[in-house]
């Protein structure tokens, strides 16, 4: 007890310091940093069908499906959540037809995903797709 009394002010100082340190880290950053991406894709092309959107490993050997839905021209996908925040290769599988028939083509793109709600609009034609986040 004597020890506690004698060092009360010093201990209070340490306590305050650790409290302020607590405030600096942790939950505070969650106000402006998201650890998940919620992706919705809109097919804004006129003559292409989007078959799937996948995340591909850097060496191309493995992939993980993200949007597993066929989008005809003008359609929008459901919102899919994924732990993808950072820089990744996305593979967009599509066909050069309005009814998802025919040969499946692929386009590989590198995206910088910041997390949170992402609305990806795909425009262009079968030769070159254009991507824009809204």
């Amino acid at each position: 007890m004597i020890f506690l009394k004698r060092h009360a002010s010093r201990m209070l100082g340490i306590l305050l310091l650790s409290c302020s340190a607590l405030c600096l880290s942790g939950c505070l950053t969650h106000w402006f940093v998201e650890a998940e991406s919620r992706l919705q894709v809109e097919n804004a092309t006129k003559d292409c069908s989007i078959v799937a959107v996948e995340v591909v490993s850097l060496d191309g050997s493995t992939s993980k499906s993200w949007i597993d839905e066929t989008l005809l021209p003008g359609e929008r996908s459901r919102v899919e959540e994924g732990d993808w925040v950072g820089e990744f290769h996305l593979r967009i599988k599509y066909t050069n037809s309005t009814d998802a028939s025919g040969e499946v083509l692929e386009d590989l793109q590198t995206f910088e995903l910041d997390g949170g709600s992402l609305y990806l609009v795909i425009r262009g034609n079968a030769e070159s797709l254009e991507y824009k986040f809204k």
Partner: peptide, 21 residues
């Protein structure tokens, strides 16, 4: 405890790319 204010300071390099965290 370590304190890094930004997600880009210690990203994780996995086979899929660079994850912020």
């Amino acid at each position: 405890f370590n304190y890094m204010p930004l997600v880009t300071q210690t990203p994780l390099k996995s086979e899929y790319g660079e994850h912020d965290g």
